[in-house]
């Protein structure tokens, strides 16, 4: 993600801006990063002890419960373990089988990519758009915020039920509203359409999430910036894209990371609808189907998990290179 180069701080002295604030407020701008040189190296033994114990505890949990099992899954993906019997080395056969002989796999991979594109290109910008509208100091803003945010806090069961309620071919609200009761559209059963309507449901949740993050970011933008732009004769759109948006960079990164996480981890909506089958396959549901359920094809499921892991790591690398480049400046 590259942002247009603009003058990020037309008002110079950062401290002047914080006048009147009741607490030393954090700022959105990068200059702090430039002060990296001053490291604090004078630790007492007690300091080292505290750091060691607390960071150590967090590390222990992270490595023991997250990274350890991840590495173990990588190992399991080369076996044909069924969860009960002995471990047997199976080479790369699981990978061969899933790429060549497991029809749902490629559909799932395609759906995950679609999901990422849909969230990234449609839902996320829509969330930003709503945030911009709600940032205009309007009345009833809290009501609108709540309305957009509600879907985020709903659990699997609610979302599954809602999908059925709205999209059901014979009894759903959508076909009733658009008057297709004679030759109803099979929103959830037709494998050519269902992924799209389900992504709409996913976007329904994602928009609220992104909206709230951006709203928070926008609240933090210094109004003086906008005023300066208006004085310079910029219209609303220009002000937003050339002045406001660039200052949202920290939020942008978080939203980007969250969008990617949501797309790769996408699971509950399709699982609630039909366990991720018949056109709604996602890598996460295939893993669940193979590993979690009664099937217990641990080796094979782990291989799918490793593929998902590899894709995640790809995005993690992209994200980190961004962070490093930023810090390197």
């Amino acid at each position: 993600m590259t942002l247009p180069a603009v003058n990020r701080d037309p008002h110079g002295d950062p401290d002047r801006r914080r006048e009147g604030s009741t607490q030393p407020a954090p700022t959105a701008r990068p200059p702090v990063a430039r002060r990296r040189g001053r490291r604090m190296r004078r630790f007492t033994r007690r300091d080292v002890g505290v750091l060691g114990v607390v960071v150590g505890a967090a590390l222990l949990l992270d490595i023991g419960l997250i990274w350890g099992p991840t590495v173990a899954s990588l190992g399991l993906s080369f076996t044909d373990w069924n969860g009960i019997g002995d471990l047997r080395w199976h080479g790369t056969e699981n990978y061969h089988d899933l790429a060549n002989e497991y029809p749902p796999f490629w559909r799932a991979a395609r759906n995950n990519v679609l999901w990422l594109a849909f969230l990234g290109l449609i839902a996320t910008p829509l969330g930003l758009f709503f945030a911009v509208l709600l940032d205009k100091q309007i009345r009833f803003s809290r009501f609108y915020q709540s309305a957009f945010y509600f879907p985020v806090v709903l659990s699997l069961a609610v979302v599954g039920f809602i999908a059925q309620l709205v999209y059901s071919r014979d009894y759903g609200a959508l076909n009733a509203i658009i008057g297709r009761t004679d030759s109803p559209t099979d929103w959830l059963g037709n494998p050519d359409i269902n992924i799209w309507v389900v992504m709409v449901a996913a976007a329904w949740r994602h928009v609220g999430y992104v909206m709230i993050l951006y709203l928070a970011g926008l609240k933090a933008v210094d109004p003086a910036l906008k005023e300066a732009a208006v004085i310079d004769g910029a219209n609303e759109a220009q002000t937003f894209f050339q002045v406001v948006f660039p200052t949202l960079r920290p939020v942008n990164i978080i939203v980007l990371v969250i969008t990617v996480i949501e797309a790769l981890r996408a699971f509950d909506i399709v699982y609630a609808i039909n366990k991720g089958r018949n056109g709604l396959e996602l890598l996460s549901t295939l893993i669940t189907e193979n590993i979690v359920g009664e099937a217990s094809r641990i080796g094979f499921g782990s291989a799918i998990a490793v593929i998902l892991l590899a894709i995640s790591v790809g995005f993690i690398a992209v994200y980190l290179s961004q962070v490093f480049r930023e810090d390197g400046r």
Binding site: R39, I66, S73, V257, I261, L283, S312
Partner: peptide
């Protein structure tokens, strides 16, 4: 504090959260 290796720490923790839950389940 910027403890030595803080970038590595940040990577380790952030990346850990990006892993899919299902990858961890069996082990």
């Amino acid at each position: 504090v910027r403890v030595p290796g803080s970038m590595a720490l940040l990577i380790l923790f952030t990346a850990g959260n990006l892993l899919p839950q299902q990858v961890l389940i069996t082990p």
